[in-house]
């Protein structure tokens, strides 16, 4: 099996009977290590649902989600928590920063929960914050940061440590054009270094950093687009 993350006919239905909403329908997909996949689709089409299922934050109604070959459904609560802590870096659409912790503490938290020493956690957190251009803001609390800065703290928390599966839900929504591009470059670098990545975005320019773009409509993956390797591109050039 080549996919680090795989979905086999995954369906997620919220609620029951007449009031039920099928947020995802029989989705099958696979993301390998070293690969970055973008997900695009209109609001309410099921993108966040897809991502929360991939990150083990929600469970499918039907079908199988595997991370690193392990069927998430086979795991106990604590087993699932461990996968989330050690393998998954998750950037939430609404940032989900803890208001009583500083930016650096927010970023260091997953590492500390994972049993890494406080000092080493802080060091890695500072490094990750520097990668998103936040050095001077490390000691500030989320409420004292701008929206775009909060978003970048959330991204630093997602990429800190050696998580092999990066899941990011609209990670560039609050950022200006160049900062958004820097964030995509960072996620891309992590994938080039061996992580499997999935990014939800409304912005085609950011989706274009991915190897493949999945288009989702009404809970269904309807199409995808893949890029040529750059040597093929240059060979096709008229020069």
């Amino acid at each position: 099996m080549s996919g680090y993350l795989t979905f086999e006919r995954v369906t997620r239905v919220h609620g029951q009977g007449a009031a039920s909403v099928t947020a995802l329908r029989a989705a099958s997909l696979s993301v390998a290590r070293g690969e970055l996949v973008a997900v695009m689709g209109p609001s309410g089409s099921g993108k966040s649902t897809l991502l929360t299922l991939a990150g083990g934050l929600d469970r499918p109604t039907e079908g199988t989600v595997r991370v690193d070959g392990v069927d998430l459904r086979s795991l106990t609560r604590s087993g699932l928590a461990e996968v989330r802590r050690t393998k998954v870096g998750y950037v939430f659409q609404g940032f989900n920063l803890i208001p009583s912790l500083t930016a650096a503490e927010n970023v260091a938290l997953p590492l500390e929960l994972d049993g890494l020493g406080g000092r080493e956690s802080r060091r890695l957190a500072q490094e990750a914050l520097a990668e998103v251009g936040l050095v001077d803001e490390a000691a500030r609390f989320p409420d004292d940061l701008s929206g775009g800065q909060q978003q970048r703290v959330a991204i630093a928390r997602g990429v800190v440590g050696d998580r092999r599966l990066l899941l990011a839900d609209e990670p560039t929504g609050a950022l200006d054009s160049q900062t958004g591009e820097d964030v995509m470059r960072l996620i891309r670098e992590r994938c080039d270094a061996g992580a499997a990545g999935m990014v939800v975005t409304h912005d085609a320019r950011h989706a274009a950093w991915a190897d493949r773009v999945l288009f989702i409509r009404d809970g269904m993956v309807v199409d995808e687009s893949a890029s040529e390797p750059v040597d093929v591109l240059l060979a096709g050039d008229a020069r």
Partner: peptide
């Protein structure tokens, strides 16, 4: 629409790769 979107998206991915190179 979707056929066009896929084609344009592919071009966009290709340009982005060129730029990254």
């Amino acid at each position: 629409l979707q056929a066009q979107r896929r084609a344009t998206m592919k071009a966009l991915q290709d340009y982005t790769r060129l730029k990254r190179s």
